[in-house]
Amino acid sequence: MRIALILLGVAAALIAPFFVYPVLLMTILCFVVFATSFNLLLGYVGLLCFGQAMFLGLSAYVTGHILKTTDLSLEIAILAGALVSAVLGAFVGFVAVRRSGIQFAMITFAFAQFVYFLLLRSEFTGGENGMQGIPRSELFGIFDVSDTLTFYYVILGMTALAILLAYRVIHSPYGEILKAIRDNEPRVESLGFKPERFKILAMSISAGIAGFAGGMKAAVYGFATLTDVSWTVSGEVILMTLLGGLGTLTGPMVGAGIVIVMNDELAQFGEWALIAQGIILILVILFFRRGVVGEAGAFFRRRQARAKDAPAGKPREAE
């Protein structure tokens, strides 16, 4: 059942560019990776980072700068961006991770605003105008990826790699400790672990994946702007994750798809797009706490449980 769904998803992703505008699809994929990075923190460690955009945006600029000023190949530029974000993530984690809940959120927010203004003032970013004309270097230094359809499959492959990495982390010995920290941090400490070390590493991995998404995005559009670092993007990724389903691997992917398509469809209505987002967020929090994927999963489990109970109930009736 699960394998069938995964295969269906992969098949849909492979044929999608023949039916949907590839740039929209690539935008969705970038945000799928971005939301996955956010979910790793909130869904599996219980850390609400309200500044995730700093990792996305910083890496977009770093990747763009490398592509503009050097001959390095595409994947190296993106990985370099991701690495810079991972280092920033470790640093923010080092400072913020001893606090939890709203304090943690506010510290990460403050860092994100700091990064925003730093990038606004920096020479190399182009300030208000953003960084324009980022070239799309060859992949591995040999493959030309300037064709949009070809590049879609490159981005799809990168997305798959990022999700596999997140999957590996979640289902690793280390991931077990993360889930334990989410469930009961004092208990983890009492068992001889130092929780903050696990959280700092989680921040760094999450920031690295977010940075990977930022690098992908810069390569897709050929420009990087301050929007990618702004707090609205940090908020949007929260919406994506909650809408899709927190703490499920597929939830944030679905959420990212829904929000990007919705933004695209509602763009013509201007401010109304934001109002629609707000209303949807309120509805999800009030009625669909588990998000789209979470609610669907719960629905199937209930049906399975009923199917299992039914035969077991018969002997009792016979008595």
């Binding site: 982390v169 289902h171 690793s172 010995p173 077990e176 400790i177 068992l191 672990f193």
Partner: peptide
């Protein structure tokens, strides 16, 4: 098993499978 990981190390292996 989480508690056993404390005594046996391996707790930071984030690229190994379960």
């Amino acid at each position: 098993r989480v508690a056993l990981q404390s005594a046996h190390g391996r707790a930071f292996r984030f690229l190994s499978p379960i």
